[in-house]
Amino acid sequence: MSAFAALGEAGYRAYTRDKTTLFFTFAFPMLFLVVFGLIFSGQDVEQSGRPYISYIAPGVLSWGVANAAVFGVGFTLMQWRRDDILRLIRMTPTPLSAILGSRYVLAVGIGVVQGVVFVAVALLPMFGLELSGGWPLAVPLLVLGVTAFLALGAIVGSFCRTPEAVAAVANCLMVPMAFLSGSFYPLDAMPSWLQTVSVVLPLRHLNDGISAALTGSGSGSDMGLAAAGLVAFAAVFGAVAFRTFRWSDRT
């Protein structure tokens, strides 16, 4: 078995055996869907005339996938480095690409499954999400989103030395970003200056792309711009993560 396959299998087994993490990875975004979906059931956004669910469902889905990617790799890298697992791996012929690649494949798989389960629930009559004909394009956008936020999580995991630090830094990044990017509140209802500022946030691009794909709120060019933005953020975050990566806390 190759190093990549062995690490991938180990990551999968560790993830599925942690029932608490497994449950909340899927239940946490669903909780926000239920709360906001019931609060704004049957209501439309005044500025656009579109139903709230067409904003809330794609936004919460994007945030849930991004959140899982950041926290998942952030905690893993911190724990592996703290326990000197990375240093032991470094003493083997295992390349860094196999370590990060195995986490990447696992994160993408989790993100896609999250998306399928989330959309299936949002389609229930009590929520009333209606899919557009371009909904399959949400899959590659989810993959790009996971890529960008996985790289962001790698940066967090490289700098933090305790679980508390990872949780604090990741929450400080992801919670404000969720509100400023339109995950919990429609951007159309926000001031124009705030809509402009949110363009510098990767979650805004993921929200826009997923929303356009699932609900038809944008054109193909809008999805293309969202994809390009996610690629750019993934490249920048990836470069920073590569430069800041450390095998051990001892050095």
Score class of each variant (00 low, 15 high):
235 A>R: 06
128 G>R: 02
191 P>E: 05
109 G>M: 07
183 S>L: 07
28 F>A: 13
236 V>R: 00
173 L>V: 01
158 S>W: 00
30 M>A: 15
133 G>D: 14
33 L>K: 02
165 A>D: 11
94 T>K: 02
92 T>D: 10
142 L>Q: 07
11 G>V: 01
106 L>P: 03
117 V>H: 09
47 Q>V: 12
9 E>A: 15
88 L>K: 15
72 G>T: 07
7 L>P: 01
142 L>G: 01
68 A>Q: 09
80 W>R: 14
228 A>E: 05
251 T>V: 15
192 S>C: 13
39 I>S: 06
164 E>S: 12
173 L>I: 03
113 V>T: 15
75 F>N: 05
54 S>M: 14
104 Y>Q: 01
108 V>K: 10
97 S>Q: 12
139 V>A: 10
142 L>R: 02
37 G>V: 00
185 Y>H: 10
186 P>M: 09
139 V>K: 10
45 V>D: 04
214 L>I: 02
228 A>L: 09
126 M>K: 13
8 G>N: 06
6 A>L: 15
57 A>L: 06
90 R>A: 11
4 F>Q: 10
11 G>I: 03
152 L>N: 01
74 G>I: 00
146 V>N: 05
71 F>T: 00
100 L>F: 04
76 T>L: 15
250 R>M: 13
38 L>K: 15
115 G>P: 06
56 I>P: 04
224 G>N: 03
219 S>H: 13
51 P>T: 12
245 F>K: 01
119 V>Y: 05
223 M>W: 10
192 S>Q: 13
236 V>P: 02
191 P>T: 09
56 I>C: 08
149 F>T: 01
77 L>S: 02
70 V>M: 01
210 I>V: 13
64 G>T: 11
224 G>S: 06
39 I>Q: 13
14 A>F: 11
206 L>V: 07
125 P>F: 03
146 V>I: 10
47 Q>H: 09
160 C>S: 10
129 L>Y: 07
170 A>I: 03
220 G>F: 06
180 L>Q: 00
29 P>I: 07
155 I>S: 01
167 A>D: 07
26 F>N: 11
39 I>E: 05
109 G>L: 07
39 I>P: 05
7 L>V: 08
17 R>C: 09
20 T>V: 12
57 A>W: 03
165 A>Y: 05
185 Y>E: 08
94 T>C: 11
36 F>Y: 15
97 S>T: 04
132 S>T: 06
233 F>Q: 04
67 N>G: 12
222 D>R: 08
40 F>S: 09
113 V>Y: 13
180 L>T: 04
26 F>G: 12
184 F>I: 04
221 S>R: 12
197 V>S: 13
124 L>Q: 14
131 L>E: 10
9 E>H: 15
69 A>Y: 06
132 S>A: 15
129 L>E: 05
206 L>N: 07
134 G>H: 14
55 Y>L: 14
180 L>M: 07
82 R>A: 06
133 G>F: 12
169 V>D: 03
157 G>A: 12
35 V>F: 12
229 G>D: 03
59 G>H: 00
